[in-house]
Nucleic acid binder design. Structure first.
Lengths: 347, 347
DNA sequence: CAAGCCGCCGACAACGTTGTCATTCGGCTG
DNA sequence: CAGCCGAATGACAACGTTGTCGGCGGCTTG
């Protein structure tokens, strides 16, 4: 099997020196047009392609033009939208993107970050999972730019882009309060996760602002997927004095909550969720959500990263992106209506 | 800013030669334990990390332990699930994954594949977009393994993993025929896309097998997103002699179709779609779909790729994965019921 | 016409690592 | 004690590329 041709082969074919080929390939102007023509013809005929690894090794600064993205799970729509935004910015800057999932496992997170750094990525966009990211200090000192997104990294200072989780959740809960709900259940993921803790805090703040005592029995934390959320919600609703409204702490949990409420015959429950999801508007009733812009999170993080790569040396920046309450109807279900009748809740 | 330490620095720190450090790092056994200890201590104290690019450059065979994945759009759930499966297999094999989107643009596809090859990825998993992939012949000759997934590559022979698109679509259409539908509308993407053409063919085959003349006026091709699908479906349904059922050619189009049917007051339309989507079961009525296993597609493709990297030299394989008809109710809407009444269609 | 300059080009080193081969040294065999 | 062996280590080249420097002509300039 013929291995790949090198500039040496091209040089031989064109009858010039290595360096001349290199010059032509890099568009340096001190090559006679005729020579350049011969070199290009040789490149064409041999199907030569520059070995970027070797070039990056030699070039000073050792830029690989590769960005690493570490997310929890590519298959989660929130992260895949974020990933697309990062990829777009990356490509626009002429870089390539490597993606790895941490699976919410700190050990795996460290491992993939190390693997990225061993490949000498120029920058990292990280949705941090572990409890300590101080090991990144070394990488940053070595010149690798790091931007945290969705959650702040712990034990290290670096650019960070997060959504206004607490404020957004409070907004959603307030929407329920405004519609008269007083017993509002909350389903959240493990509060060890930054976003989960923030949103839960927002929930409590909204209740407190409304002068409502916090009733722990209406709260279920550590709920990590739609199936568990459905079970928890069903259980909450079957209690003696059930909540009249439920708040879902993230897209997966909200879906579980909606599934639970759909199964509740003769008991309609208001629902608001954090994070929009594709068909929220098409459910019955359409689901009101606190929408965070995953695409904007990714884009902002990537832009921040490239600003660093362009030499920006200002102190670490913390960016908080606002959320939007998308009112679709599910939050407006009046208390006391517990029949199967369909109310005319517009989309 | 202190740049990264090299084995040279480690060697100096430990008072040994470059080669000894290299030996320790690669676990070669001809190093005295005491020396190895000093080297490891130096590695630790300097925070040394091997530069994989340089190592790969030197090592024979020049493996980078990187796999490239080219898909249409990371943010499309079908592809993001596929991507996750590929990533899992990749990581299990100790490789890293680079992902790039082609955006259904042949020029961009060529560009990202070239970029991957310039980085000397060991293998490529490609959802092909362009009309000609013969340019990959060179890369394959140079030793890069290539597996096509979701669609076959054109103008080149290589391992391919696709779903049973035609058979699956025929299955879905037959389901509608079995429920008495005779006027079945079809919405499909650009038939230049392999999967779209196959599914459309399956639709026609099913009609033909049922002895039904193909009515072109019920078909809309080249529909590329949910918004366009909703418009096309609405238009089809407002015709003088509207279809009683609609088949959506992919997940996005099915969603548009469902949106259109939800807006049809007083006219209930049966819907079956190709490709499952997250909340299909929660819509009203729950949407019957022909489900393809995106995860299995990705996993199978990646496994095929690693078999090649492990030295498998058998001729190119074509794998076709089956689809599953997931009956949820939307296909069973009886003809003639055109009121707003809710039928008791179970989930 | 000498001096200088510029366009064009090649020899060589270097990037960080590993493969090849040579060297040293202690101990063992004959 | 000569000879040999193997363990441990190092010197050097090489991977494919680019940076540095210098050389060779031909042209302009004083």
């Amino acid at each position: 099997m013929g291995l790949r041709p090198t500039i040496k082969d091209v040089a031989a074919e064109a009858g010039v020196s290595l360096k001349t080929v290199s010059r032509v390939l890099n568009g340096e102007n001190s090559v006679a047009p005729a020579t350049a023509g011969r070199v290009l013809a040789a490149v064409e005929s041999l199907g030569y392609q520059r070995n970027e690894s070797a070039a990056n090794l030699r070039r000073l600064g050792q830029s690989t033009s590769i960005i690493g993205l570490v997310i929890e799970d590519v298959a989660n729509p929130f992260y895949s939208v974020l990933a697309r935004a990062v990829e777009e910015v990356t490509r626009d800057n002429g870089y390539l993107l490597m993606v790895a999932s941490s699976g919410e496992d700190p050990a795996q997170e460290v491992e993939v970050i190390r693997a990225f750094c061993a490949r000498r990525v120029d920058g990292l966009v990280v949705v941090p999972t572990g409890a300590d990211h101080s090991f990144l200090r070394l990488e940053m000192a070595a010149g690798t730019a790091v931007v945290f997104v969705d959650r702040p990294g712990i034990g290290i200072e670096s650019d960070t882009v997060v959504a206004a989780n607490a404020r957004g959740a409070a907004h959603g809960v307030t929407h329920l309060l405004d519609h008269g709900h007083r017993r509002i259940g909350y389903l959240g993921d493990d509060p060890g996760i930054y976003t989960a803790a923030e949103r839960y805090a927002g929930y409590r703040q909204a209740l407190e602002a409304a002068g409502i005592d916090h009733d722990e029995s209406l709260v279920r934390l550590g709920v990590s997927d739609a199936v568990a959320a459905e079970a928890s919600a069903t259980e909450l609703l079957s209690r003696p004095d059930p909540p009249t409204a439920l708040f879902g702490g993230n897209n997966r949990l909200t879906i579980g909550v909606v599934q639970a409420t759909q199964r509740q015959n003769g008991q309609r429950v208001a629902v608001v969720g954090f994070d929009d999801f594709e068909l929220a508007a098409m459910l019955d009733p359409p689901v009101t959500v606190v929408s965070q812009d995953a695409s904007a999170l990714g884009r902002t993080a990537a832009e921040l990263l490239f600003r660093r790569l362009d030499g920006d040396r200002r102190p670490a920046q913390q960016v908080m992106l606002g959320t939007t309450l998308v009112v679709r109807g599910s939050g407006e279900i009046p208390i006391g209506i517990r029949s199967n009748e369909r109310e005319g809740v517009g989309s």
